[in-house]
Amino acid sequence: MANASKDEVLVRIRGLHFSHGPRVILDGIDVDIRRGSVATIMGPSGTGKTTLLRLIGGQLKPDAGTVEVDGQNVASLSRGELFQLRKRMGMMFQTGALFTDLTVFDNVAFPLREHTDLPESMIRDLVIIKLNAVGLRGARDLMPSELSGGMARRVALARAISLDPMMIMYDEPFTGQDPITVGVIMQLIRRLNDNMGLTSVIVSHDVAEVSAISDQICLLSGGKVVADGSPRDLRESQSAWAKQFLNAEPDGPVPFHYPAKDYRDDLFGERD
């Protein structure tokens, strides 16, 4: 552990393979995520970005290869050790995943109540600090159903940082939000990361937003890493993949057309 904590790399992924039934989702992935950085995993839909997050969080087990978080091989941990590790990881789900039967306050207090024996007065103070950090101190008595999508994500973020974790994973934090909310969440991710000394891993396909706040972008396609580096590296990269993705070109290595037989044949050839 003492050695591991000096390690510059917090998440080290080596030769990671994962398939869902016959479908290969991740096909040999190597990624390093450095401590204190904001790293983004990008790629077209269905390339296993969320799967990668779940592998890092230990919710799925890889078919081959390793995921090391803070020097520990996630897949080889016992359930108890995994839960210990997860207390130091926060995760913000796509929809927020707030508990619908608890108020905002109780949602943020949930991990504290589950994992600490702090007195209720101290929990209250901690929750208010966390809610203030995301600007929702005044919303503490609302139910999740009364929140807008952006607010729900901010509450989820407050919940994710309530145990002061070492890293936070964000699953599609910007999807479906208005520009103001996107701006707020972007700023929050970067600020929390720097102020609390976190490491952030974001899964997203919002190119502009992510480029603005990330230290590292890792582009996945077809189960492989096709580009990995700083946003500037990627922009200057000659990779056709990176170009198509960053410039949002409709056709390229990711074809516009679903595989089909020749168009001319289809129109004028023999009908079947």
Binding site: Q59, R86, K87, G90, M91, F93, T100, P111, E114
Partner: peptide, 12 residues
């Protein structure tokens, strides 16, 4: 709504 997953990720 991923509440169960979320719980698991909170080590509960």
């Amino acid at each position: 709504t991923e509440q169960l997953s979320g719980m698991e990720m909170m080590a509960v």
